[in-house]
Design a protein around this nucleic acid. Structure first.
Lengths: 338, 338
DNA sequence: TTGTAGGCGTTATCAA
DNA sequence: TTGATAACGCCTACAA
């Protein structure tokens, strides 16, 4: 019921100055062993923990990490949040979320304000916002720590964690071809996003190597939404009825393909194979369950958290060298041998 | 590129003391009109905004609102976060997320610590954690502001926002019966949760009024997961093959029912009708699209945010009287007339 | 190795 | 209506 103990209480109880207590709190090396032990004990007894507000005010830090995103995929965001938090809480940071509007004009200043208003120590940026060069530049100019999560290596390795979507799609292409598929259609993502381009290129690249042609009219650009998936699937299936396998840029759109196939009386996977990307909640639930690609989102997020904290605390972890993770194929029921 | 202006800069430029500037910032009434205008102008010119850290240190506030939950439903959480943020950002608060582990022993002290470490001004608690009486008591005892989101009216109305799940299930029952259903099975949620009990009771209540009996062996308690839905559906469908309609406590389990029906060669909705709850992402994607119940989650969350801010700032909004919102039926393709 | 003094940017007390 | 002055709890030069 009493107030929280302060550094002064600890200092008084331990019979030292608060400066010394401060040293102990911050793990400074120049403290006598006996003194340190005495102080540690008092801290334990009193349950003292430094006040973040005061600490922040004095040191210009907040122990707050921001998460910036404009992504409709709630599941992805949830995984990221949990991944980041697993690291944060252990290091004494809290996570402040900031969904934003990538398309508005003031989106950059909005993000900058978010950071400076609350003195956020650093931000983690999710795709597709993370692809915005302007935001990264603005952040850098303002000396704000940031780490981007992306599908392309477009920044210094201490500022980014990338998933190798391209490699994953090469695997998928090989898998499809190995099952005999030759008549392949694609519902790509918006080509203004690197992630979409990477996936498309990785897929086509390997298909070409394996001498499988995909005529341009079998590649349709979707918008990553379920509705868009439905629309594109209709177009594709009517326009190119010979297509026997479709890769959709994400599971949402793949679910749309399933829907259209059902409407048109096409059986999946017997008459049409379908692949998605994300391993969304949907993927396993849908009938037939989707063969798709899973990114280790939680791990990537945790890595991003470690990087941002390393930046903040100036402790360049060796691990900072790691920045590339590879997604892997999840094989379920939506692709069949022909 | 210069540092942010401080209250001192403003005071100097306006030729007043910082105390007066402080009054203007905080909207105190006892400031001369001319003085106020001058100060307002300087604030605008300099782009000054008060530092939250310093402000918090002085006033014992952080302008941080915490979100406590232990809920696997990422979509629900995402909707809540957006709803809360829409209010927060406008009132100058930030949202700090705190997923926790309802089942661990230290879960309460963990939450309390979370709040006190960062001086969180108030917390919003989501179900099912929000049902924990002990947590609410601990919070109250520590004088921590909180608002619970729940399905039952189990707290003071300024501390809770409840969705009337019971009423929604009465509607569902009437709807099913109106379509001729008499052979109804139920996959309920864990009965240790109020929300699950409310739904089950509301459903049975109205069924009884309409003289539709549900034998006890047609009511199976599930765990709200997809897997659990599959398991329960198998049991139910094998044990009571005459069942022609199933209500599942959430969409995840309803998706499980669909899966099992497909496995067993039972056509939905022709031979079996299915209803869910949540209007999950799945609901519209699955085939057939699920008839389900939608809670206005975003609105509830925004309301909760307004309540918590009212508590923090001591401004009891009249709106605080509102606390009950009613979910509504979303009719899709999974229930058919018999 | 330890302590003293001053400052971080704001709000609160009390007088004028 | 205003303004000195002291908190708030911690960190950081600079000394000892």
């Amino acid at each position: 019921m009493n107030k929280r103990p302060t550094i002064n209480d600890v200092a008084r109880l331990a019979g030292v100055s608060k400066r010394t207590v401060s040293r102990v709190i911050n793990g400074a090396s120049n403290v006598g062993k006996a003194t340190r032990e005495r102080i540690d004990e008092v801290i334990k007894e009193t349950g003292f923990s430094p006040d973040k507000q005061a600490r922040g005010l004095a040191a210009s830090r907040s122990f707050l990490i921001g998460l910036i995103y404009d992504n409709p995929d709630a599941l992805y965001i949830d995984q990221v949040q949990r991944g980041v938090l697993s690291v944060c809480s252990e290091k004494g940071y809290e996570l402040v979320v900031h969904p934003c509007n990538y398309n508005t004009d003031d989106f950059i200043s909005n993000c900058i304000q978010f950071v400076s208003r609350s003195r956020i120590d650093g931000v983690i940026i999710l795709p597709p916002v993370s692809e915005a060069k302007e935001l990264a530049e603005a952040l850098r100019e303002k000396q704000i720590n940031y780490v981007r999560m992306a599908s392309v290596d477009l920044d210094d390795h201490s500022n980014i964690v990338v998933s190798d979507d391209r490699a994953a799609l090469r695997d998928l292409a090989r898998y499809m071809v190995s099952l005999g598929h030759r008549d392949i259609g694609i519902i790509s993502g918006p080509q203004r996003y690197y992630s979409s381009k990477e996936r498309l290129e990785g897929f086509l690249e390997t298909l070409n190597e394996l001498h499988v042609e995909v005529p341009v009219d079998r590649i349709i650009e979707g918008k990553n939404s379920y509705e868009s998936g439905i629309e594109c699937a209709r177009t594709l299936l009517i326009q190119s009825p010979r297509v026997k396998a479709i890769f959709a840029n994400n599971d949402e759109m793949a679910a749309g393909v399933l829907k259209v196939a059902h409407e048109m009386g096409i059986t999946v996977p017997d008459e049409l194979s379908v692949a998605g990307f994300d391993d969304n909640l949907l993927a396993a639930r849908v009938i037939p369950a989707l063969t798709t690609v899973q990114r280790p989102v939680g791990d990537m997020a945790a890595l991003a958290a470690r990087k941002i904290i390393a930046q903040i605390e100036g402790t360049e972890v060796s691990e900072t060298e790691t920045y590339l993770v590879k997604p892997h194929l999840i094989i379920r029921d939506s692709i069949k041998r022909v």
